[in-house]
């Protein structure tokens, strides 16, 4: 059973270990990329090939989340969601099914909604990632958040951050959706309390409130 507890896995020393050598190997990726400009083409290729395989121990990972760059050391098997929740204290996105089905972990990467539980952190580097923490202006809730409150768009609230992010992804692409488009646009998110009707109303209300201000 404990084998299926990823949290334990992640903390357990990996095969090959988190060693000084592993760390330097990881650093080699960055220095290889920087160095390629001044190396001959053949040497650059060799440097890249040498640095192309990383892990299984912890490696340096750089994530751009809500406009801020975070540098952490995690194993390649750590997902974007777990990197945020367990290493960066960015806990708005929730870990529910952890299998790319329920949508509670929804984030936006380069303008597209994604399941952060099903993306490796190491694979999310170089992307502009937005989480629920990053959508509101200072001291003012995002119109979507307000609309969720106004329309009873949540009961237990655990799926809500994912729904808000999925809705934001939808409205960024289609600022004036129809009811059916809202329904289809939220097809990747589940709410076991069954607040779908309130959620859809909230998204339509937010769309009206946001007219002319894409990201208020």
């Amino acid at each position: 059973m404990s084998k299926h507890h990823d949290e334990l896995d992640e903390k357990a020393p990996p095969k090959g270990g988190f060693s000084r050598r592993g760390f330097f190997r990881g650093v080699g990726v960055t220095s290889g990329a920087l160095g390629s400009a001044i190396l001959g083409e053949q040497e650059a290729d060799a440097a890249q090939a040498a640095g192309a395989k990383i892990g299984p121990g912890a490696v340096p990972v750089s994530l751009n989340i809500n406009g801020k760059v975070h540098n952490i050391n995690v194993e390649p098997r750590v997902t974007l969601l777990d990197a945020c929740r367990n290493h960066l204290d960015i806990t708005g996105a929730k870990r529910v099914c952890d299998r790319g089905t329920c949508g509670a972990c929804t984030m936006i990467a380069n303008g597209k909604v994604i399941y952060s539980c099903t993306v490796l952190a190491v694979d999310a580097q170089g992307k502009q990632i937005q989480t629920i923490e990053g959508i509101a202006a200072a001291a003012r809730p995002h119109p979507l958040s307000t609309a969720f409150v106004n329309n009873d768009g949540q009961q237990c609230g655990y799926c809500t951050p994912g729904f808000v992010m999925a809705a934001k992804g939808l409205l960024d692409k289609n600022p004036s959706p129809t009811y059916d488009q809202v329904k289809a646009g939220l097809g990747g998110n589940l709410c076991r309390c069954g607040t779908y009707v309130g959620v859809r109303k909230a998204v339509l209300e937010a769309a009206k409130a946001m007219k002319g201000a894409k990201n208020a």
Binding site: D9, K15, I54, G55, V59, R77
Partner: peptide, 11 residues
Amino acid sequence: MQAFEYANPTS
């Protein structure tokens, strides 16, 4: 999941 080596080839 089990730990693994990760590669990011460009060709």
